[in-house]
Design a protein around this nucleic acid. Structure first.
Length: 399
DNA sequence: TCTGGGGTCCTAGGACCC
DNA sequence: TCTGGGGTCCTAGGACCC
């Protein structure tokens, strides 16, 4: 008998791309300072902008000359050979690569390049999920060009033409594999993966290559003598469940087989807006009160400005405090109506701070507004009538 | 020489209501 | 009066990601 061909048309094979810019911040800086190309360059901290000398040469800070706090956000591939990577403390990086050039971060410029590469991709394929400043997922399932390799190359060419920058792309049956795949051939990579590749190309990789398995889960898995994704795929489900609970354990089993059904989602409204700052040196609640107070006011004004720019208001105001021993505490306070006014945020933030025992010096202060109501809701209620009106008793007590 | 700043999502307990 | 659930909201902390 012939095979039955009358069944419903199969859903089209999913084709999901993950596109990741190569050493994004550092690569943007190299466009500005091409003479640094080939040198170990790292981005991070609050160092100084390079200075162009009269003879045209560039004077910039070396890692060994940096004093202060902060971490690296990016390093060039040359710098990575010294073992310095993003999220590493700058002082630690200075030990490993003292001669590396250190540039301060310049977020507005990176945002500009981010918009450029995303717009270039959108002209080729418009089913895009934003995953931050330097990466996106693209659903190519219904794209007219059926040739994955040709399509991936087209996307890379479009990004380079728009920005002068290289990126790495993988096309796979789902987001999980596309994300892993885009790292396999970095930089300037092009990777195609199918489910048949899972045992040979995915299983040998370390478990933390999976998006969602972080340092804690990796450590727990190590204690179970599970190091690779393949070992995870063959692990005893009961053992995983005992270590992680049912929900996370079954997710682990799924992803270790390369299975992932998450859709590519194109729009997402922000859920919260926050600003925080780590001080150059720890501040004392009493002795440095004036300074802390000013920082709090500034943070509230910045958050309010962010909200107004995004045309949204929020009901839950939160503060975050990090003490000198790195212990972090948060408190929040929900208002009866949403606000974007700095004085409302400041008042609620002070209420939150009153509930924290100030036992040590403070390293970081942050302000967050959540429970955002999206935009367009024009002041329905009287925002002048607030539930918590500042009184002499509640203002000025803390910060 | 420790450890930035912007987010999301999950869990878990308690309050409160039906 | 006691017992019990379910549902929702609020709060705090933590893991994780870029």
């Amino acid at each position: 008998m012939r095979e039955c061909t009358t069944s419903a048309p199969a859903t089209p094979r999913r084709r999901i791309a993950h596109l990741d810019m190569d050493a994004f911040f550092a690569s943007v800086e190299l466009l500005r300072y091409p003479e640094l190309r080939g040198l170990p360059v790292v981005i991070g901290g609050r160092g100084q902008t390079p200075e162009r000398l009269p003879d045209g040469s560039l004077r910039c800070l070396r890692l060994r000359d940096y004093v202060g706090r902060g971490v690296l956000t990016t390093s060039t591939y040359e710098a990575r050979q010294y073992g310095v990577f993003s999220a590493m403390g700058i002082m630690r990086a200075a030990q490993l690569a003292p001669d590396a050039v250190l540039l301060p971060t310049d977020p507005p410029v990176y945002r500009e390049y981010s918009q450029r590469f995303k717009a270039a991709v959108a002209r080729v394929a418009d089913q895009i999920e934003d995953r931050g400043i330097d990466e996106i997922y693209i659903d190519l399932t219904r794209h007219p060009d059926p040739d994955d390799a040709r399509l991936a190359q087209r996307l890379k060419d479009a990004v380079r033409a728009a920005t002068g920058l290289s990126c790495s792309i993988a096309i796979a049956p789902n987001k999980l594999l596309a994300k892993i795949g885009s790292e396999l051939d970095k930089p300037d990579g092009l990777t195609l993966l199918t489910m048949a590749d899972v045992p040979t190309r995915i299983w040998p990789l370390a478990v933390n290559k999976i998006n969602g398995i972080g340092p804690k889960a990796t450590l727990t898995l190590q204690q179970l003598d599970i190091h690779t994704i393949g070992q995870l795929a063959h692990a005893d489900p009961a053992q995983l469940q005992a270590a992680f609970g049912l929900s996370y354990a079954s997710w682990l089993t799924q992803v270790s087989q390369g299975r992932d059904e998450r859709p590519v989602t194109r729009v997402s409204a922000p859920k919260s807006v926050s600003r925080e700052t780590t001080f150059a040196s720890d501040l004392h609640v009493v002795r440095d009160r004036a300074q802390l107070s000013q920082i709090l006011v500034d943070l509230c004004e910045q958050v309010a400005g962010d909200l107004q720019r995004k045309h949204c208001k929020g009901r839950t105001i939160g503060v975050k405090l990090r003490f000198e021993d790195f212990r972090t505490v948060t408190r929040d306070h929900t208002l009866s109506c949403a606000t974007d006014a700095p004085q409302d945020i400041l008042h609620a933030a002070r209420l939150c701070l009153k509930r924290i025992a100030m036992t040590r010096r403070i390293r970081l202060l942050g302000v967050r507004v959540g429970k955002l109501d999206g935009d367009a809701k024009e002041d329905i209620g009287p925002t002048t009538r607030r539930p918590d009106t500042p009184t002499a008793a509640t203002t000025g007590l803390l910060f």
